[in-house]
Write a protein that binds this DNA or RNA. Structure first.
Lengths: 191, 191
DNA sequence: GACGTTTCTTAACCCTGATCAATGTGCAAG
DNA sequence: CTTGCACATTGATCAGGGTTAAGAAACGTC
């Protein structure tokens, strides 16, 4: 599945086949079963991943309640990137919602890539920019849209995947309670 | 005022005095009067700045209404960084709220720095990470706090500066209407 | 110092979604 | 099958903040 990440990279970086051979040696492929953790609360985050297949959720436990911040879908990077960078323990939890397959890069491998391939420095920016854009969009959607609109957008943009996610997680992701989402769904169904 | 940005950089990058001499040649110091624009809607954003002194607001015009997203304070980077990176025209406006002083770096100068000082590549990450953290915090505050709490935090964290900003901008920044903020202020005053 | 403009406040009413509590549904394990 | 648990729905009530419209205050300018 390394070709997925190769495709993703090649949008940003040109490299030769022999370079790619050396680079891809540093990648680790890992499978996750449903419910398995990419990172647990209190752990250090030493990997950035690229999801070849599957789905993860990124959430906090606030007073024992799951508060979902992100879903990570296939063909996107996955990480608690703040912690990856800051070397602090993760306050968030990242967990597979279904059987998934990820290409991992260890922090030290990334440093190695930065050194051996200066152009690879762009990768660090690329990942951060990627995350930056995702969060910007979410932030905008909170300012400009109602919960109902956010829900409709989610259905629009992630039609199939959303079907596999329990509603209380979707609600939390939308920033509302399960009851709130249930009412929105009822309201929409009446049309 | 270049020493401000030097201090900021030296948290991330070590360089010698002679390196710094070469680097700092690429910086441009610019003064902004109150109301002057760092970037206008529809312009390309070819500069990243570092605010030595002053205050800027970053906003959209939505149906003619100012919708404030950020304030940029002294000793922080300033940019419409998405546009800086993507080379698209800015949809946002960045405007000085008071007499300000900024150290600018042109995009081409930054590329030059990247080439001449590979370790400078970190700068790109640093800026993006900086913006990423800022927006993450704001996003969290929207999910977890009421407008009143966000207002109190703002007073707590930016006690003096906030006094110079008209309330309708603060309201917009907090994601509420001026009327809403007025009510909150009244409620707080009664205590 | 009077005027117009911009900003801020207040009030009445409305809407969205939170909270709390009860009920319903689906599925897994015994 | 049935017991139990997690998840979803529903209803009643409530609070925060939006909208609209009006007036008050602050400020710049002549």
């Amino acid at each position: 599945m390394k070709k997925n990440i190769k495709n993703a990279f090649s949008n940003f970086i040109d490299f030769t086949d022999s370079e790619w051979l050396e680079i891809s040696k540093l990648f680790i492929e890992k499978k996750y079963d449903k419910g398995e953790f990419f990172i647990q609360e209190g752990e250090y985050c030493n990997y950035v991943g690229f999801i070849d297949k599957g789905l993860f959720s990124y959430y906090y436990l606030i007073d024992g309640n799951r508060s979902t911040r992100q879903f990570f879908f296939a063909n996107n990077f996955i990480s608690n990137y703040s912690c990856f960078l800051s070397n602090e323990k993760s306050k968030a939890i990242i967990q597979a919602l279904e059987k998934s397959s990820v290409t991992l890069i260890h922090k030290s491998s990334l440093s190695q890539l930065y050194q051996n391939f200066p152009k690879f420095q762009q990768l660090g920016r690329m990942i951060t920019e990627n995350l930056f854009l995702i969060i910007s969009e979410k932030y905008e959607s909170f300012l400009l849209e109602s919960a109902e609109e956010r829900y409709l957008n989610l259905i629009e943009n992630r039609p199939k995947v959303i079907q596999n996610i329990p509603q209380y997680m979707i609600a939390s992701y939308l920033g509302i309670t399960p009851e709130g989402l249930s009412r929105i769904r009822k309201r929409l169904a009446r049309r």
